[in-house]
Design a protein around this nucleic acid. Sequence first.
DNA 1: CTTGAAACGGAACGAAGTATTCCGTTCCCT
DNA 2: AGGGAACGGAATACTTCGTTCCGTTTCAAG
Lengths: 198, 198
Amino acid sequence: MRTQGAARNSEAILAAAREVFLADARAPISAVAERAGVGISALYRRYPGKEDLLRTLCHDGLRRFIAEAEQAAREADDWAAFEQFLRGVVEADVHSLTVHLAGTFTPTAEMNTDAMRAGVLGDALFERALPRMRPGAVAADVTVLLEMCAAVRVPGDADRTTDLRRRYVTLLLDGLRADAPLPGPPPTEAEVNWRWRQ
Amino acid sequence: MRTQGAARNSEAILAAAREVFLADARAPISAVAERAGVGISALYRRYPGKEDLLRTLCHDGLRRFIAEAEQAAREADDWAAFEQFLRGVVEADVHSLTVHLAGTFTPTAEMNTDAMRAGVLGDALFERALPRMRPGAVAADVTVLLEMCAAVRVPGDADRTTDLRRRYVTLLLDGLRADAPLPGPPPTEAEVNWRWRQ
DNA sequence: CTTGAAACGGAACGAAGTATTCCGTTCCCT
DNA sequence: AGGGAACGGAATACTTCGTTCCGTTTCAAG
């Protein structure tokens, strides 16, 4: 046989779903089953439908985002806290998870609560780092920067993707500390959160 | 009536195709017709099939990329030339055009030639700017940076998208001039050009 | 060993979505 | 007025998935 137990399959399915849907949010559910090495029914035994799987995945990402933010907030140095936060979020590829998948399902009330909390935590980290930030930078910029990081990918090589993203987070952090002001009106809340409009 | 002539329709179709396919490379061809305010047959009169439209669009983008590079190369100051190149390519949203659409069609021989020429021109601009670049930066980094810029988008508002991208090009350019070396192995040619593998 | 229930695998089904074709109609120019 | 170029958009012919179903395998308790 191929799998050793129901619990093991559950984990395999979640991992496969993460890989597959991060590579393409519109991937067919059969691709997830195939990747996990299970049949389709193993999937439907656990989730009522595709949307539920997507929702679970996204919510997990959101929770992870919150965890990273809380962890980073414990750092005493303000800029170090912000840097740890950015690097943590990028490392966990949380932004792809939350942003890429948004819009593929209808969010639960709890997700909205969590999303709000995530925003508050992120803003707080940003505010602490603000004194050392270049003039004109706003919290919404960070969201965009995270999105830009998520756009970096080496298909089929998660490790290499992470390596490259680390490289560019470094570059972005340096860019955030430059002296010159940032040009143009900063992104608004709406421009940054359009993916969450149901 | 709605349109004023065949020539006008040709332009409308190309413009609509750019908008629609940049928003979603997998959009149906009917969306293009709708956006252009024409029927489907107006499209098929001009292009044998979907792939040909995509190919035309992408090739136009490639040519524009080359034009921007040649234009920027005329600038005397090395860094200014590089900066003008980056800004020009981002402004024209050429990278989305070439990178987003790659893989949706089989490229012609001429496209491959042009793609190669584009690479050479870009590398030359990078080499000129190299002395003022942070340690560890390579030409392939620029490709990734352009890709990151293309990830910035405000759906349905092209002007605002351009504004925001200008904002982050500024940030990226400053990041490219920081003092500290960039961490990790730089991206390889293959990692940067995976979209062109047929 | 039994044996009943939980887990599965994967074919089959049905609803969508979509590239392309076709034909009747409108436009434009002479 | 007339003929061909351009069109609009319904109809066609597939393809692509989400979901269901049912026969089979696994597992643990007796």
